[in-house]
Write a protein that binds this DNA or RNA. Sequence first.
DNA 1: TATGAATGAGCATTCATTCAT
DNA 2: AATGAATGAATGCTCATTCAT
Lengths: 214, 214, 214, 214
Amino acid sequence: MEQQRRKTRQELRSEETKSSIRDAAGRLFTARGYDAVTMREIAKEAGCSHTTIYLYFKDKEALLEQLALPPLMVLEETMQAVMNRPELSSTEALKEVSRQFLRFCLSHKSMVTIILNVKSVRVDEANPDADINRRRNRIFGCFTQILNRVIRPASDEEKINYTRIYYYMLHGMVTTYTENEEPLEQLLARILPLLDQAIDILLLGMQAKLEQRG
Amino acid sequence: MEQQRRKTRQELRSEETKSSIRDAAGRLFTARGYDAVTMREIAKEAGCSHTTIYLYFKDKEALLEQLALPPLMVLEETMQAVMNRPELSSTEALKEVSRQFLRFCLSHKSMVTIILNVKSVRVDEANPDADINRRRNRIFGCFTQILNRVIRPASDEEKINYTRIYYYMLHGMVTTYTENEEPLEQLLARILPLLDQAIDILLLGMQAKLEQRG
Amino acid sequence: MEQQRRKTRQELRSEETKSSIRDAAGRLFTARGYDAVTMREIAKEAGCSHTTIYLYFKDKEALLEQLALPPLMVLEETMQAVMNRPELSSTEALKEVSRQFLRFCLSHKSMVTIILNVKSVRVDEANPDADINRRRNRIFGCFTQILNRVIRPASDEEKINYTRIYYYMLHGMVTTYTENEEPLEQLLARILPLLDQAIDILLLGMQAKLEQRG
Amino acid sequence: MEQQRRKTRQELRSEETKSSIRDAAGRLFTARGYDAVTMREIAKEAGCSHTTIYLYFKDKEALLEQLALPPLMVLEETMQAVMNRPELSSTEALKEVSRQFLRFCLSHKSMVTIILNVKSVRVDEANPDADINRRRNRIFGCFTQILNRVIRPASDEEKINYTRIYYYMLHGMVTTYTENEEPLEQLLARILPLLDQAIDILLLGMQAKLEQRG
DNA sequence: TATGAATGAGCATTCATTCAT
DNA sequence: AATGAATGAATGCTCATTCAT
């Protein structure tokens, strides 16, 4: 509380600037992709000089990372929360978690690259990405976990393959609609049912396949 | 007829140059991606001056488009040929066609953007894309056709949805492995079986779902 | 008198800040050279904001100038002290003074420019340089004086020329080793004997030349 | 002959541009030093776009190197020629060679850095500097050779030290007058006699010292 | 007195493209 | 038909300095 009150006007202004940069970068990256956006464009959109950006972010890459982290944390928490709801069947949990994921990806389009890319930005340099990578892994871990629950009778190899196939479909939906410019809610209203259907099909198919083989 | 016969030596040389540029650009785009390749590199690889490229192609983008067309035509023909093989069951045909498609996408990485993008490059300028778009639609039409054969009892809406879901998975596989730098054949050896499994699962799942509902 | 006593706490603090900036800049300039050091680095090292520096110093160049003065004063005093030691022969005095000079230059590398440059920084603006220039002249005056003692029989023109030649050699040693990154004492242990030899040779040579001519 | 005639107008223009860049860079580097000069300034002075420079020179450093090499070759040849004139005494040869060197340094001021710097630009990267370094070493080798002839009775260690002392003096003269803006010939008329005197003094001094010791 | 925020000018370099031949 | 010469626009980034508080 006290902490909140103690913010000077300068600090407020600073935070404002920083978040206006963040917002601008978010909008621009989302709309046109990381590479296609220049620091000067971000600055213009944010209403400041391009040098000001470097006051708050080490470089362009750091900007992307700082942009990705907080929403990623929210997503992770949301997904964990879903998994801890005991009243949900495995199938329902998988559906809900997938819906969260799809919603997230489509509302943070520029971050999709970061989240879905197998080899993330700067994997070699340890520090800042470590966090991003860890979180991404945990997010994908959610899917794996629930999916394993649903297809328990499968062998380890089958589990790995089926999980991959599940990812393909999800990944495919995300990238298909990443470029789409329809208003988010409208788009989701249209494709969330499709996602549910797809999951039904995949789970049914996996079970059928396991029975066939057994 | 006459036109064909009357090709002067100059015309032949010209065509040669043009196709050497096309080849060079193809190799380079495929290997390193559209953005990362410069006009000068293409020219060097093609054994001509970079200014010569502008004699045959309006700009870099036009080069990409003209480049995409022939392989797309080959792909289309290959896929049609598979569909016309009467000895193949619908399922087998779908698998084979999907394999062809995946192989094509992974061996023409730079063209994936063009093929998969819902809104292709420069939709606004009518002419040159029209052809590309037509072909892309025909390619996707193949999938739709075969898939419809397999899930004949479904309603029209179900057919549309199921086809979409099928695309998601395929699309997801392609984009997942587009960035992969493994040698092509080795990669395909690894993921083609996965594709077969995925198709099995999807088809089984779709059938199960249709029965459930019926 | 009164002025000295009346220093308020504020004034003291202010002087402290100023000298911490001076010290920091001195350390940094010495270690890495004027150009390679940024105002922000100086501020960090001094434990203040970079804007504070501008409170005490007009700009980066003024900082360098003010920085040069005190060590220059120390050097001057040291050299004068040597000259007033009656037990030293002229030759010994010249050697000792030259050693002091060389040691000083190599331990204040960034100031060498200021000291050795014929046309000092910003000759046009009269005031602040006047002092620096005066001191530099006095320092060089030392050499001239002692040298004149040693080569008393020479004509005025010869004296001027010989002094110049002496400077060339000294100047040459300084600039040769200014870029050297060897630890100071180690470097000096290596080159101080060389300096002595050089002085011996020059003095012997000057005397021989004078005799030749006479 | 034929080769000369075959130069097209384009080639001529190209060579003109290249040498106008070279000239401009030479003037500017000479006047204000390598670091202080920007590519855009060079371009402006050369009457072309700054991008044109990159057509002829890989980067700024390459420009400096290409600039330094030809004059360095001329200097080397001139110095070798002097050494091969049998009618000259060692002393005379040393004087003449030193005059050539001083004249060269003062008429190619920007290259002094390259020539005198113990650790040249980019010592680490082998290729292009190798040549420059080799030449510089050969040039300094000249001095060493002649000097050794003059002070033949000295021990090896003495030879090394005396050579160093000789360099200091020469180096000192060069750097002293590098910043000088007097017209070259006028300046040389003034300091060449000084150089002769300095050499006389050094040689006499060295001989006296050797006798003293012996 | 002191500072954080902000900026314009500048840097070397790259690229797709056009011009003149 | 083909090309070398040339260029403007951009890019990410840094720095000394000024502004507002």
